[in-house]
Write a protein that binds this DNA or RNA. Structure first.
Lengths: 212, 212
DNA sequence: GTCTATATTTAGATAGAC
DNA sequence: GTCTATCTAAATATAGAC
């Protein structure tokens, strides 16, 4: 009987905690840290404001958790693909682009969220981001890249050249979607279809930039 | 005597007003609307908080002015180059990339500022951005693009395809500079030199994407 | 764990002296 | 025009009942 109550209580806790976090992700990514009111998160989660502080103690603590998670979502895409022993360099490039499209299709607000908080000098995220360098430089991906360069398959340049082009062409169209929709005179549905059509070409273009 | 006093007073006004605006641009672009405290702007301008309200009446009014100006800086680059009767399509592409580099070298915070405020549903900027579509579609640039397509010089696609690649490869590296600096293991000076070296290649790459 | 009511802190805006 | 001091509104965080 005690166990059952305990379990039930635990489940309820987990569920509420998750509801708050889900709401926090949405609101923080939408409005940024400063623009978010804890009341909005509480309302979005369908709970009371006091309860939010009961679970997470403060806005800042909650934010750190969300920030790390968002950063994780973003980085995990690379790290998962990048060390796959079974794919070629070119396949990996395609896989990364595919994975970013998948993520950003659902959460287009993540890049601006991360980059604007990072620019404002957020500590938490800075530390997390620091790890990126090592992840890249010790990856299967890096080895394959070096090997391809050695074979003169691609122009000899540091890997950042390619990473930059890949990320630019993949991520920017999601970040700037309101602006680009206006310029291109498309509604949201049309725009998304357009990005989907464009996706395989991005892979091709990135490979082209490595050759010239 | 009255005139002299009047002139002196006017000059003083203009100077203070400019100081406040310069400070506002810096702080707003750095921290966004919600993250900015009017006290910070006042301090940055070296004046008192009350004076800010004396000149601009409210935070929101001041913000609108800054927002329109930032947006203007950003759009003007395109609009100036885009209707030049004396340059070819390819030269225009080079000129746009050059002009963005010039702007973003000084004010790398502009794109995130505009895009994050736009995403949050800012009214002022939305209206301003709406004009973009017409600017593009009635430009000399657009006519040259259509002509080149008609001559089968480039793959037949709406102009937004090219605009997107150009903006992505040019603007994103500035937006994501903190992140890309870490990945590429560069300090700020090295990173800037890198972007400068890369600039002519961006022109080439954009033209390539139009051919395949 | 969850709520209502309230205390506390922060930030925008104004009054009034100089 | 410019400042100091203050008012007011908004938002975070907590106390205490259920």
């Amino acid at each position: 009987m005690k166990n059952q109550a305990s379990v039930s209580s635990t489940m309820k806790t987990a569920k509420t905690e998750q509801k708050i976090m889900a709401a926090a992700i949405k609101v923080f990514q939408d409005k940024g840290y400063a623009g978010t009111r804890t009341r909005d998160i509480a309302e979005e989660a369908g709970i009371n404001l006091a309860l939010l502080n009961y679970y997470f103690r403060s806005k800042e603590k909650l934010f750190e958790i969300i920030m790390l998670q968002s950063m994780g979502d973003f980085m995990q895409i690379m790290t998962a693909v990048i060390n796959n022993e079974k794919t070629t360099l070119e396949q990996k490039i395609g896989d990364i682009i595919e994975a970013y499209h998948e993520l950003l299709y659902d959460k287009p607000g993540i890049p601006i969220f991360i980059l604007s908080e990072l620019r404002q000098g957020n500590h938490t995220i800075f530390l997390k981001a620091t790890g990126l360098k090592k992840i890249y430089q010790h990856s299967v991906f890096a080895k394959q890249y070096e090997a391809a360069i050695a074979k003169k398959k691609y122009t000899s340049r540091p890997m950042i050249w390619m990473i930059m082009n890949l990320m630019s062409m993949t991520i920017f169209p999601f970040m700037a979607s309101p602006l680009l929709q206006m310029i291109g005179d498309m509604n949201q549905k049309e725009y998304r279809a357009f990005l989907k059509t464009r996706k395989p070409l991005v892979v091709k273009w990135v490979l082209q930039t490595m050759k010239s």
